[in-house]
């Protein structure tokens, strides 16, 4: 998924790091522009436009004409795109077509919800993924190994939109343990600071709200975590197996260190490097999965927002939102690559 595979070994030299980062950032700009141009033109030549949707069944030619005029949709496309860029340079993402609100304000409202969900999912996938990975590697070819690796394969083969619905069916409908959707129960009041509800609840010491927010997180976060969890588990296993074969592990064992100590202290630490990279790359998977998960669990984050915007042809939201998501995406990939370079001890030895 990322460009880490193409990384040049020379760059690990600390002095070369800064220019490397700068170059990557420079490459980012045409990439982002490319994304926004493609998305912009594709959606604008698509037949349904926001005027049509706003007016619905009762649209008349006159009303459509006036509304399009107002939204600037009668201008040639390159001028519309130019206007968008001009605003962008001023740091302005414009105003949404439907809610007539600053796009930036909407991003600020929705992004924390996605962050909360993704981080929760990432934590779940790391904890379980690494655990099963280590267990599998240390007990290679045992029943446990087979089971967890088959589990991991089932995990990557899972249609998560379906899994979400099935979990909802079991845990909310039949057992009644967990709420079906949304971020907070109806009676719960919460003062928002960051809009990450569980964090806000902690900051304001609101335990009832914290419990409620976490309770609402469980199902969507678990649903979203399945694929990354499986990937992390497999990566941990193969990385651990490779390290366990190394001589120094054998030496450590020979020295009489306990098996557990060797596994955790020596092997795991070294095996962690590719795992960390893998984890970083899961952000992309999470962002994509968030669209489906948020739609199913009515989680008001950017994924659902973007999907609705495509359906409603809210060009302003799509333009601003895609750029924002792509920027996040590319930045995370960059950070992962840099981190990889920084933490990789084998390379610094060379």
């Amino acid at each position: 998924m990322s460009s880490s595979g193409r990384s040049n070994h020379k760059l690990w030299n600390q002095k070369l790091m800064l220019p490397y980062i700068l170059r990557r950032i420079l490459i980012m700009i045409p990439t982002l522009l490319g994304v926004s141009i493609i998305v912009f033109f594709m959606l604008h030549v698509t037949p349904g436009d926001p005027a049509e949707l706003l007016l619905g069944e009762r649209a008349t030619d006159e009303a459509l004409l006036q509304l399009r005029e107002h939204l600037g949709l009668n201008e040639p496309l390159y001028i519309q795109y130019g206007m968008f860029l001009k605003r962008l340079l001023k740091g302005d993402l414009g105003e949404t077509i439907w809610t007539r609100q600053k796009v930036w304000i909407e991003v600020k409202q929705r992004f924390p919800a996605t962050i909360e969900l993704s981080i929760a999912a990432l934590i779940i996938s790391c904890v379980f993924g690494i655990f099963f990975g280590i267990v599998s590697a240390t007990k290679q070819y045992s029943i446990l190994d087979y089971l967890s690796m088959i589990g991991a394969l089932v995990g990557v083969s899972m249609p998560i939109f379906w899994l979400g619905l099935v979990l909802m069916l079991i845990f909310s409908l039949h057992l009644g343990w967990l709420p079906m959707s949304g971020r907070l129960s109806i009676g719960i009041e919460l003062e928002t600071i960051t809009n990450i509800y569980s964090l806000d609840a902690l900051l304001t010491g609101n335990w009832a709200a914290f419990k409620d927010a976490v309770w609402h997180l469980v199902l969507p976060a678990f649903t979203l975590s399945t694929i990354p969890m499986a990937i992390v588990a497999r990566m941990t296993r193969s990385s651990m197996l490779e390290v366990l074969k190394q001589d120094y592990i054998k030496t450590a064992r020979a020295k009489g260190l306990s098996r557990f100590a060797v596994t955790m202290k020596h092997a795991f630490r070294n095996a962690l490097i590719p795992v960390v990279t893998t984890i970083g790359l899961q952000f992309g998977v999470l962002m994509g999965g968030a669209i489906l998960t948020e739609t199913i669990f009515a989680w008001p984050g950017v994924g659902k927002w973007m999907y609705d915007a495509v359906m409603q042809r809210d060009y302003m939201v799509i333009q601003g939102g895609t750029l924002f998501i792509a920027a996040m995406f590319v930045t995370i990939n960059l950070v992962v690559d840099v981190l990889y370079a920084v933490i990789n001890p084998r390379i610094s030895v060379r």
Binding site: G34, I38, V39, G288, I318, I325, F329
Partner: peptide
């Protein structure tokens, strides 16, 4: 890179739209 700079399901949604 442009294709990869984006959650692929979102790109597919835009394309199908």
């Amino acid at each position: 890179d442009i294709i990869l700079a984006f959650p692929h399901i979102l790109l597919a949604i835009v394309m199908v739209a």
